[in-house]
Computed example of a mutant assay.
Amino acid sequence: MPPRKTSPGQLLKKREVATSKPSAKSKISKNNKAVKNIGANVFRWKVIAITVLLILLSPFYYGYILKFFASSWRWVSDLGSSSHYRTYQSFGIRIPTRYHIHGIDVSYAQGKINWPKVKAMKEDHIHITFAFIKATEGLLTVDPYFKRNWREAPKVGIRCGAYHFFRPKKNGLWQARFFLQNVKIESGDLPAVVDIERLDGVAPAAMRNQLHNFLNHVQTKTHVKPIIYTGLSFYKDYLEGYYDDYPLWIAHYNREELKAGANTNWWFWQHSETGKVNGINHAVDFNVFKGDSLQFERFLMR
């Protein structure tokens, strides 16, 4: 039987069917591409995951985050408060900002101080310009860190003043002599300071009598009125009206302003006792000077 002839139309259909069916090679190629795409996606996600992990573990990331939240918290904590009394994160306290000359006072309680670090510390315009340094107490005690602080602080440009912790039960004249035996006050220093903040069991009048003897002797020897340091309540109770012509350094903490009275002759205000300063490993008292830079210069010894 002769073979059936294939018509041209049937032949065309067979060719179309043959070309429409994918070859084995085509299937393998597509599978390889899919596998490669999956591998590339997995690799990409691994890179992203490792990058995120490295960022999260980076100290720079945490430093940035902590700084952001600290700044945000400071903004929230200061919300609604006076713009002239704000928190300074690096110093760890709120500081009255109406004043432009800031300082600290130190004693053995602050330990060994790195004065270059103290001088270098700054946030906005706040930096340490002056320091009151404890020298003596009563008739026998010399602060163990006085000589070092008195020598090292001026080397970095900090203006210094020495203070004596006054004991009302002890003779005021002898205390003044003891103080001046241990402190050499020179040009450029702040005037001598007497720290009187307790009665030690004596009558107020007896305390004032011995304090008067101390002040007179120091003024005679230095030719400048000493500064009187005291707390606001102690001043109001025992000193007000008796020493109005002496410059005062008054302690009154955590306030926007020192409300000691318009006629009070105060020039220094100790506004905090919990400050932080680079180079000092313990809390430190913070102070401001009431006047401007020219007044501060005139306040120094000649």
Rank of each mutant, 00 (worst) to 15 (best):
K221L: 14
T222Q: 14
T222Y: 09
T222E: 14
H223M: 11
V224A: 10
K225F: 04
P226I: 08
P226M: 06
P226C: 07
I228E: 01
I228W: 02
I228S: 05
T230H: 02
G231K: 07
G231V: 09
L232G: 03
S233E: 14
S233M: 09
S233V: 12
S233Q: 13
F234T: 12
F234D: 07
F234C: 07
F234L: 06
Y235V: 09
Y235C: 06
D237S: 15
Y238M: 02
Y238L: 02
Y238N: 14
L239M: 14
L239W: 10
G241P: 12
Y242P: 01
Y243T: 03
Y243G: 03
D244N: 15
D244T: 07
D244H: 10
Y246D: 03
P247S: 09
W249K: 05
W249V: 01
I250S: 04
A251D: 03
A251P: 03
A251V: 01
H252I: 00
H252G: 04
Y253V: 00
Y253N: 03
N254W: 01
N254K: 13
R255Q: 15
R255M: 09
R255H: 13
E256S: 06
E256Y: 01
E257T: 15
E257W: 05
L258T: 05
K259L: 14
A260W: 09
G261E: 07
G261A: 04
G261Y: 11
G261D: 07
A262N: 11
A262K: 15
A262C: 00
N263V: 00
N263P: 00
T264F: 06
T264Q: 07
T264Y: 11
N265P: 07
